[in-house]
Design a protein around this nucleic acid. Structure first.
Lengths: 206, 206
DNA sequence: ATTAAATCACGAAAAAAATCACGATTAATT
DNA sequence: AATTAATCGTGATTTTTTTCGTGATTTAAT
């Protein structure tokens, strides 16, 4: 069922989504492709092409219904089906992500955090508990969690990843700079903060 | 001078870079395109094409010199030239980024943080001080900082961005979900955590 | 009504990116 | 020395993504 939406498109879709949220808050009910295009500095037919993927027809001379667009985007990107996840590594980044409520509105439900530092165990962060890493395998099984967000220091990344895989985690969202070695049954998404930004910042800073 | 390297390529380059760091630590001096390709689950000719952009020749039957590749990637992505930046918003994400030492090794030098909460002022984070936001315009001018990393809550994003622009900030790395309105002279990079991940996580979770 | 302006839909063209395929080269092996 | 196998380099091909152009539709204005 899930159409294969290219990465670039789904990136744009989340941006459109943010604009929709903003328009809804402002009480505006319709929006046109040139409006969006100008805002994001892209081509307006690009916007319409993207929207066509959503099966959400617009109306000439009026634009699209903001509410409908928002719903379609959510459905298409799968915000709707909630996915549970664990954060592994309760350092600053792990905590920041735990507090990042946007995840929730995007359908990613952080159930708990893990760490190996006894000092951090049992602390509550944004209503989520920090557990000792040794509790993870059991909880993965009991709660059927498939996604782990990895935010440990680089030098432990591979070893923790191995542990996650053993514990039956299927998707690793890797915030560490380590390039993980995993079996084909496990999928890794490398979050690459600097990568794209550097390019952006260096383009004209000389 | 700076060739315009597409985003996708520069993303891969940072991954290659991590692998180089790892190989250097392991004391391995050469690496081949199939090795890298297998590791990242991509095509090996893709790797070679990317390396061609670096003007870094490999040797048949041997591969590429790890050290040379690393240097070329750093030069090409601009790790070399250090860029100063301020973090605006000292919440969890701001603090996490301030502690994220990788930035430094990628040539991004965080000079200070800002917030409007009096409780946070003057705290030191990873040797960087938190200043009251009112001090920003002055410091921008005195230190010639052009880049701001925006990590305030969504509802303040636009208003803070306006303030940054007034203060002469030229590049905004936007970690908030808000889509900022800025004049053409200011460049915004929207960090889109969920965008690409959703695509990844939904592709086969049904 | 008629006209004008804005906007969508959509197919076609262009551009960009990824993949394939294969000859050339080189190190190791026989 | 000849053979083999791994690897690079790169042109050709395919796929994906973006942009362009045109006709249809709708609202607002005359």
């Amino acid at each position: 069922m899930s159409k294969n939406i290219p990465e670039k498109v789904s990136n744009r879709l989340t941006l459109y989504h943010s604009i929709m949220v903003e328009y809804i808050e402002a009480g505006i009910e319709t929006i046109s492709s040139p409006q969006i295009a100008q805002r994001l500095n892209i081509d307006d037919s690009q916007v319409r092409k993207d929207f066509k993927l959503l099966n959400n027809a617009g109306k000439c001379r009026v634009g699209y219904m903001v509410k409908d667009l928002k719903d379609s985007i959510e459905k298409t990107l799968g915000f709707a089906k909630t996915k549970d996840a664990f954060i592994v590594g309760s350092g600053h980044l792990g905590l920041a992500l735990a507090k990042y409520d946007s995840f929730n509105s995007y359908g990613l439900n952080i159930l708990a955090l893990f760490d190996n530092d006894p000092q951090k165990i049992d602390i509550q962060v944004n209503n989520k508990q920090i557990f000792h890493i040794s509790k993870l395998p059991n909880l993965v099984q009991r709660l059927g969690v498939e996604i782990a967000i990895l935010t440990v220091p680089r030098q432990y990344a591979q070893q923790v990843a191995d542990f996650l895989i053993e514990s039956n985690i299927k998707y690793i969202w890797n915030f560490t700079p380590a390039v993980l070695k995993v079996p084909p049954s496990v999928k890794v998404w490398n979050e690459n903060l600097m990568g794209s930004f550097l390019q952006f910042a260096c383009k004209d800073i000389e």
